[in-house]
Design a protein around this nucleic acid. Structure first.
Lengths: 149, 149
DNA sequence: ATAATTGCAAAGTCTTTGCAGTTTG
DNA sequence: CAAACTGCAAAGACTTTGCAATTAT
């Protein structure tokens, strides 16, 4: 499994290893994509990954990024999240959390996935609805931007 | 189908009137689109609106649906919501609520928008983050589907 | 060797836009 | 009549896919 509190380098390594273990192959493209995801603290768009990777491998095509992303999702290593503002980001699955997304400065702060546990319990007790845990993005103004109008 | 027909009729009328009041024009296309939104209990995709409307007005183009939707959003009558499963729906703004979306049977249940007030207060007090109210969709299994596995 | 993977080009969604003709006020 | 609105076609953003060439094992 992907390592917990180790260096990013090791984490990339662990994920590549997991791909290999499951019959996939170790390639530069995959390494590059995984590196960006790991480095990015857990929330990047496909496009951001592509541009980032192209700095080192200009020949890399977006389709390869999407295919790598698909592979990582199939392996349950990466999760695709659709935010309430319509944007789409990818992040490591062992790094689940909600987000505070500032609409003004674009900053993204992470929040424990447990934040909504109370609400989820209520939905179960009250409606019998079993929520499937999904990282959510709350949009609004961060502390800084809320102060200076 | 004809149960609430009349009150819906009036609601459509009111919205058309509001468009006119603000300088817009009363057209059949708009009336048809608005009718579908009003009838649909508050959550329809652009595509669903288009197919619905085309039953009566086969010549209606999707672009007109999108433009009408844009107009209604500009007038703050309709809201566009991006759900966490990647789907996009439109609903009347005066009818704000969260949703319980069953991944199995596709049912959508409405919840008071106040559901997350506690969480929002916490985010404000704890992080100084001012959440902009947005209807969210919680995905999972509804009571019925949760029982029969 | 041989099966997985990639780059490229093309296609598929969903949504928006330019334009010329039509309709509303 | 003038401005607003519509249909149609085309384009744009984002994502997926077919295929021949490349690469990892």
């Amino acid at each position: 499994m992907a390592g917990q509190g180790h260096s990013h380098e090791q984490q990339v390594e662990a994920i590549l290893q997991e791909i290999v273990d499951r019959g996939g192959r170790r390639t530069m493209s995959r390494q590059a994509v995984i590196r960006v995801i790991v480095d990015s603290h857990g929330h990047v768009s496909a496009d951001a990954i592509a541009s980032q990777v192209k700095k080192d491998f200009p020949s890399m095509d977006v389709s390869t990024v999407y295919r790598t992303l698909e592979t990582l999702r199939d392996l349950d290593i990466v999760d695709r999240v659709y935010f309430a503002d319509g944007s789409t980001v990818y992040h490591l699955k062992d790094h689940q959390h909600h987000h505070l997304c500032c609409e003004k400065c674009g900053s993204i702060e992470e929040l424990p996935i447990t934040l909504l546990e109370g609400v989820e319990d209520l939905l179960l007790k009250e409606f019998g609805f079993r929520v499937k845990q999904r990282p959510l993005g709350f949009f609004g103004l961060c502390a800084k931007c809320a102060q200076m109008p």
